[in-house]
């Protein structure tokens, strides 16, 4: 990241374009990390219920989201 960008980012912290882009990207990162961890947990024999408990979501939610991946 260039210095100019850094300055622009620092100077515009209340700029919705910057803030919303950060949130969108954070969501993308979250999705990737969750997928990796769920896949890893399944590979290690965890049940959907165990995964759901640690993620603090319902078993149905996590199962519905990831069963199509074949984990």
């Amino acid at each position: 990241m260039s210095d100019a960008t850094k300055v622009a980012a620092a100077a515009s912290s209340r700029d919705p374009a910057v803030g919303l882009a950060a949130v969108a990207s954070l969501r993308g990162l979250l999705e990737s990390l969750e997928e990796l961890q769920v896949s890893n947990a399944r590979a290690q024999g965890w049940s959907w219920q165990q995964i759901a408990d640690v993620l603090r979501v319902s078993r149905q939610a996590v199962h519905k989201k990831y069963r199509r991946y074949g984990f």
Binding site: M1, A22, A24, S25, L26, L29, S32
Partner: peptide
């Protein structure tokens, strides 16, 4: 889904 944007994430310290 938004592509991972390193610059955007850096504005929130990631």
């Amino acid at each position: 889904p938004a592509a991972l944007d390193a610059e955007a994430l850096s504005t929130i310290g990631i």
